[in-house]
Design a protein around this nucleic acid. Sequence first.
DNA 1: CGTAAAACATACGCTACCGTATTTTATTGG
DNA 2: CCAATAAAATACGGTAGCGTATGTTTTACG
Lengths: 174, 174
Amino acid sequence: MQLTREDWIKAGLQQLADEGIHKVRIEALARLLKISKGSFYHYFRDHQELLDSMLDYWEIHATKLIVQSMEQQDASLEQLLQISFNRDKKMEIGIYTWAKYDPVVAARLVDMEEQRISCVAKLYQKIGIDENESIDRARLAYLTYVGWMTRFEANPNFDIDKMVELLINDNKCP
Amino acid sequence: MQLTREDWIKAGLQQLADEGIHKVRIEALARLLKISKGSFYHYFRDHQELLDSMLDYWEIHATKLIVQSMEQQDASLEQLLQISFNRDKKMEIGIYTWAKYDPVVAARLVDMEEQRISCVAKLYQKIGIDENESIDRARLAYLTYVGWMTRFEANPNFDIDKMVELLINDNKCP
DNA sequence: CGTAAAACATACGCTACCGTATTTTATTGG
DNA sequence: CCAATAAAATACGGTAGCGTATGTTTTACG
């Protein structure tokens, strides 16, 4: 059964999630796919083109999902935060770590994160926070999410439910 | 003027801060220090021993400073958060990114971060939060700090003063 | 001063990866 | 079935880094 271009991209993303961007190497992927690297150059001009394609692929499959789930009217802030805190962690932190080494990736992440932040801000507004404050609170929630992604594997003491609770309830004064 | 072991360690940490752990290479550092790599093996058994020494060095110089500044009685929560959000960012995020690739580094970071978190928790208690909640709030503040370290360079929209304000004032109900 | 040790330089073999060139094997449409 | 094209394999030269072995220069000090 023949390989496809997408197989290489998926293998690259898997390797990114498992081992980090520096181990996304043509010959290593070829070994994983049990194929020779000659095949790779049939689908991609060079290593960089694979990396570009990986980012394109992830951008479509990751961000669109979040935005779509937002557009369903019944989404609550708690639901969205719970979704964010629970999906695709390894892949996602792989991308964020990658961005630390590649300014192009970093710049594209900025666009995506601003989208996500404004989604969360809208939900804060739904529960009665005014617009300016909602954006600040959304940024706070987002940074907490990024920090959690960075550390939760190494340190199991971070309880995501507690964090979500604090992020949602802090504004409510009895 | 002869090199010292510490010169190599400092060069390694500088390279970590500037370019990431994957560019902390013996021959690259030798070029930066304008010396041959023969010298390196006079001070270190191998590459790993340099990495170990770098982490030791940073552990002493970074965490001790925070804990000491805490032990001065006049430290306020706001001061500590401001200090945390402002010092040695490049070096620090270099270490955190390194930890993503090295479980030993990750484990040692856990010890350090738990120390820092309990420092912050104590300060939350000082302003009247009860013990359990203070720890959760400290964890939230800490994760926000890590997220901010990860993203502030790529995205300038994260305003540290706003974040600190939210982290301190959210518990106060009028 | 002279010599031993420390510090540094040079040269080597090895591995892993890149990208190219070339050849071989599969697949598919006429 | 059989070209023609796609896909995959193989072989090559080049770079960068590791660690070792060995040679040279400084430095310290008796």
